[in-house]
């Protein structure tokens, strides 16, 4: 499973109140949630991400709330994959369960500028930055987590198991 898209880059400690502020939690339209993604740090984020992006972020991405509206908003803003130096625990699980690929790689961040085309290979955790012709190694996902992402999320797996 490969993802190829332009990079958008932000810093450390992007918490769930930044990804989707509390006042939007009663919005049930997922596309509308997507339009508010990352509003706390970049009010024009969803315009930049429209054509599909790899989100490159620093440490402790997604800290705070268990609100699944955070990864839902990012997914609907057309974020194809998130590469962080590290993730907060609940966000990490939520993203996987929604089928949004997440990789931890500490070396990539400083070697990316906005607009770089990144090619991410989920099976082996390799991330290629075409501009500088360098490949970075992320911690590969364990097979059962990769299986959830490749199924398009945990709900699809649940559906299969209930049949």
């Amino acid at each position: 499973m490969k993802v190829e898209a332009k990079a958008l880059k932000y810093g450390d400690n992007i918490n769930t109140d930044i990804i989707i502020p509390g006042k939007y939690l009663v919005i049930m339209d997922e596309e509308e949630l997507g339009r508010h993604a990352m509003e706390g740090i970049d009010p024009v984020f969803s315009g930049k991400s429209r054509d599909g992006i790899v989100l490159v972020v620093g440490d402790n991405f997604g800290s705070g709330s268990s609100r699944e509206q955070a990864p839902i908003a990012l997914k609907n803003a057309n974020v194809k994959c998130i590469v962080a130096k590290s993730f907060a625990r609940i966000f990490y699980r939520n993203a996987i369960n929604l089928g949004l690929p997440v990789l931890e790689c500490s070396d990539l961040w400083s070697e990316v500028i906005e607009g770089d085309i990144l090619t991410v290979s989920l099976e082996d955790g390799l991330i290629e930055n075409g501009r500088i012709r360098r490949t970075f190694k992320a911690q590969p996902l364990p097979p059962f987590i990769l299986d959830i992402i490749q199924s398009g999320g945990l709900l699809n797996k649940l559906k299969q198991s209930l049949k």
Binding site: S66, E68, R93, N94, L155, L162
Partner: peptide, 13 residues
């Protein structure tokens, strides 16, 4: 511990 809604759906079932 806290979990998200998708996992919670799985736990409910």
């Amino acid at each position: 511990t806290g979990i998200g809604s998708t996992e919670m759906t799985s736990v409910f079932i």
